[in-house]
Design a protein around this nucleic acid. Structure first.
Lengths: 189, 189
DNA sequence: CGCGCGATTGAGTAATTTCAAATCTAGTGG
DNA sequence: CCACTAGATTTGAAATTACTCAATCGCGCG
C-alpha cells in the first residue's frame, strides 16, 4: 500500500522507492488528539503539516471572541499558518484538530533543503502552491459575487465529504455568516 | 537604470547582467492601450503578465451583467487568469487595462523552460506564488471577519496609491459591495 | 432521568441592496 | 471661455438580507 504522501507527490512528479524514502526522511510523523491545539496565536510556527489522517483547521479569534475559520484540512491537504511559517514570524492564527489526526510535519529548513537536493520537489511545491493560489482566488470570487446561500451551495458541491465531519457552526464560520443564518438557509432550500 | 523586472527578481535571488538578459529573453514586451481587453472569457490564456507600467484588472461578469473584480495589478505586479493559464484551459475571467500599460508577457512554455534552465528562477516563482497565496488568505480572512467599512479601510491602508487611480465603482466591485454602499461608507468616516 | 451541547426558531435591529433621481465632473465642440 | 453631454458619484426611500440576543428543541451520554 503506497504512502498517501507519495501518492500526492506522484500526481505531479514520479519518484523511485529510494527517492520517496529520501523525501520522507525530511518529514516528522506526528499524532495529535481531537481538540488538541497545535499552534497558538503568538507561537513560532515550525512546521507545515501534511494531513495523512484526520481533520484540522486554521482560524482566527477576533476581539469579540468570535472564531473565523480560514481553512479546513482533511486527508491529503496541507495546513499551517502560512504567513508565520514562511516568514518565520509569530502565528496570528490558531491551528487545531477536529479529529484524532496523523500528520507529516515539514520544517521550513527541511523544505528548503529538500528543494535544493531534489529539484523536482521544488517543482512539486510550486505546482501545489499554484493550485492553492487558484483555489483561493475562486473562493474570493465566491465572496464578492455570491450571497450566503450561494456560498453554502458552492461549498457543499466542492467538498461534500466535509459536511459529515464538521459542525454547522464551523461551516458557518468558514462561510463568513452566523450559525443562525446558516440554519435558516437550510430551511429555505 | 535597472529594469523593473530585474529589481523584483533580485529581491529574492541575485542575477548577473548576463543572467538577467537570459531571463528577459523568455519574455515578450507588449504595449496595451487604456480600455483594451487582453483576455476575453473563453479565450486561451497564453501569457502571465508582469506589469512594468500602467494598471490592469482581472474580473468576471456575472449573469446579471455585474462586474466582479478579482484583482488589480499596478507596476511590478503579475496578472492573468491564473486558473486558465496554468491549466491551459479557456478563460473564465476577463483581463483588461485601466491605463495605457507596458507588460512583459511570459508564456507557460517559457516559464517552464526558464525554471528548467535556471533553478533559481523556479525558486523565485515559488516564493512569489507563496507570497500571493498568503496575501489571498489574508483577503479571505478579511471577507469572513469584516464588514464593508472595515474591508474598505483595510484596502486603503494596504494600497493607498490604488485609490487615486481606480474609480470608486471598481473599488466597490473589488470589495464585494455595491457602489452605493461604498459611497455611503465614505460619508460615515 | 437529566445534563450539556449543537442546532433551530422567533423577534427586533442593523447592514446592505435595489431602483430611481439628483449632482458632480471632465472632456468636447462652438 | 462657456455650454453641453456622458459617465461617475451621491443621495433618497423602500425592500431584502443578515445579525443579535434570547428561547426552545433534539439528541447523545453518564
Amino acid at each position: 500500500m503506497k504512502h498517501t504522501l507519495r501518492i500526492q507527490i506522484e500526481e505531479i512528479v514520479s519518484l523511485t522507492d529510494d527517492e520517496f524514502e529520501f523525501v520522507l526522511s525530511h518529514f516528522q510523523p506526528k499524532k495529535f488528539k481531537k481538540h488538541q491545539i497545535i499552534i497558538h496565536e503568538g507561537d513560532n510556527v515550525p512546521y507545515d503539516f501534511f494531513v495523512a489522517n484526520g481533520l484540522m483547521k486554521v482560524s482566527r479569534v477576533d476581539m469579540d471572541g468570535k472564531e473565523h475559520i480560514v481553512q479546513f484540512a482533511m486527508e491529503n491537504w496541507w495546513i499551517t499558518d502560512a504567513q508565520a511559517y514562511h516568514n518565520r514570524a509569530k502565528a496570528t492564527l490558531i491551528v487545531d484538530c477536529l479529529e484524532d489526526t496523523d500528520v507529516f510535519a515539514l520544517s521550513l529548513e527541511n523544505r528548503e533543503k529538500l528543494c535544493r537536493e531534489m529539484q523536482k520537489m521544488e517543482y512539486f511545491f510550486l505546482k501545489k502552491t499554484t493550485a492553492g493560489y487558484i483555489a483561493l482566488q475562486k473562493r474570493i470570487l465566491c465572496f464578492i459575487s455570491s450571497n450566503a446561500h450561494e456560498r453554502y451551495n458552492n461549498l457543499v458541491s466542492l467538498y461534500p465529504g466535509l459536511m459529515q465531519r464538521v459542525s454547522k457552526s464551523m461551516i458557518a464560520s468558514y462561510l463568513g455568516v452566523t450559525r443562525e443564518t446558516l440554519s435558516r438557509l437550510n430551511a429555505t432550500v
